[in-house]
Each structure stands twice: as structure tokens, then as C-alpha cells.
């Protein structure tokens, strides 16, 4: 398919009538995927609330074990990345692949910063015997026994969220390659918009995770 530097889509795939129809169908597919993401995390949040009701003291102790300043920092980092991602979509819709490239670079940098902070948080918890599993957990480290359950929710939920960030980094590397090849135009920017939707959902999940894990 690649025939040179510029390899832009101008014709729809044979099973679509027009570029607009193909774009709408692709985008709708991403939305359906986002719906399943919300339901998957929704179930985890339901579990979080049920056990918070049951073991309130453990949730209070668990929350106090986390550094809310790091959580707040990461929240701002993710919001900034969502902003640059939204702007990258705007740029690519206007056919400006260079500007979009720069904005996706910033988004990717934010994703890395988020994961580096997460690495220090996780390794600190493991070091203090607060990781529930692999023989790491130290019962002496907490006052309420069920705090172990809180830490399980913490690692599962932020871990699943972190995996989404890592997948996002991969998707953005793919976008960067295609933006560099000048593949997108006013007529074709579906991939940029799709990755954008994914990235914003990851941000929305964190908007709920931050207060529930670090603050409450």
C-alpha cells in the first residue's frame, strides 16, 4: 500500500458508500468498545463500594497509606494529556499532521510520566509489605486486617488502569508513525479520533479512581 511519503486515504473501503459513512461506522465501533470499558470498571467500582461499606475502617486506613500528592500530580498529568489529545484530534481534522504530531508527543510524554510515578508508588508499597500477594504482604504493617482487601482493590483497579495507559502508549506510537507519514487529512482522521476516545475514557476512569483511592 505504501507508495511514498504521502499515502492518504481518499476512497472508502469497498463495503462502504462514502468516507463519511466509513468514518461514522468506525467511530461507532470505538464507542461500543468504550461502553464495555465503562461496564468493566463499573463492576470493580461496585465491588469497591460494597466492601467500603462493610470494612469502613480498613478503607480509611488504606487511603491514608497512599500519597495523595502523587495521586493529585498524576491527575493533573492525565488531564493535560487529555487536553493535548483533544487538540491533536482538532489538528488532524484540520489536516495539520505536524501540529497533531507535536500534541501526540506531549500526550505520550504525559503517559510515561504517569507510569513512572506509578512505578515509584507501587515499589514503595511493595517495599513496605503492602502488596497483597506473592508472599509480600506483611500483616504487621497495618492495624486493620481488612486493609489487605483495600490494597487488593487498589492494585487491581489502578493496575488495570495502568495496563490501559501502557496500551495507550502503544496506540500513540502507532499514531505518531502514521502522522509522521502524513497519512491523515481533512477527509480521513478516524484513527486519531478513535485513539482520542480511548484516551479520554482512560482519563475518566482515573477521575473516579483518584478521590476514591487517595482522598476518601
Amino acid at each position: 500500500m505504501s507508495t511514498g511519503k504521502v499515502d492518504r486515504r481518499v476512497e472508502p473501503s469497498h463495503h462502504f458508500d462514502s468516507m463519511i459513512q466509513e468514518h461514522e461506522a468506525g467511530k461507532q465501533g470505538v464507542w461500543l468498545f468504550m461502553a464495555t470499558e465503562l461496564m468493566m470498571f463499573g463492576a470493580l467500582f461496585a465491588g469497591y463500594f460494597i466492601y467500603r461499606m462493610k470494612y469502613y475502617d480498613a478503607w480509611v486506613e488504606g487511603g491514608s497509606l497512599l500519597d495523595w500528592k502523587l495521586g493529585a500530580f498524576n491527575t493533573i498529568v492525565l488531564l493535560l494529556s487529555s487536553f493535548t489529545m483533544a487538540q491533536a484530534v482538532t489538528d488532524s481534522m484540520q489536516g495539520n499532521n505536524k501540529k497533531a504530531f507535536r500534541n501526540v508527543v506531549i500526550t505520550t510524554a504525559c503517559a510515561f510520566i504517569f507510569m513512572i510515578v506509578k512505578y515509584f508508588e507501587y515499589s514503595g508499597k511493595i517495599h513496605h509489605g503492602l502488596f497483597p500477594g506473592l508472599g509480600v504482604w506483611n500483616p504487621e504493617a497495618v492495624e486493620v486486617a481488612e486493609t489487605k482487601l483495600f490494597m487488593t482493590f487498589y492494585f487491581v483497579m489502578t493496575g488495570l488502569h495502568g495496563i490501559h495507559i501502557l496500551i495507550g502508549i502503544g496506540l500513540m506510537a502507532w499514531l505518531l508513525k502514521r502522522l509522521k507519514n502524513d497519512e491523515f487529512s481533512k477527509d480521513y482522521y478516524t484513527s486519531v479520533e478513535g485513539v482520542g476516545l480511548y484516551w479520554h475514557i482512560v482519563d475518566i476512569i482515573w477521575i473516579f479512581l483518584f478521590p476514591l483511592m487517595y482522598l476518601i
Binding site: Q28, W31, M34, A35, T36, L38, M39, G42, A43, A46
Partner: peptide, 10 residues
């Protein structure tokens, strides 16, 4: 509607 229906089920 897709977004709202997933929120409805949650």
C-alpha cells in the same frame, strides 16, 4: 445513546 446505555447498566 451507546455511552448512556453503558452508564445505565452500571
Amino acid at each position: 445513546t451507546i455511552m448512556l446505555s453503558s452508564i445505565a447498566f452500571v
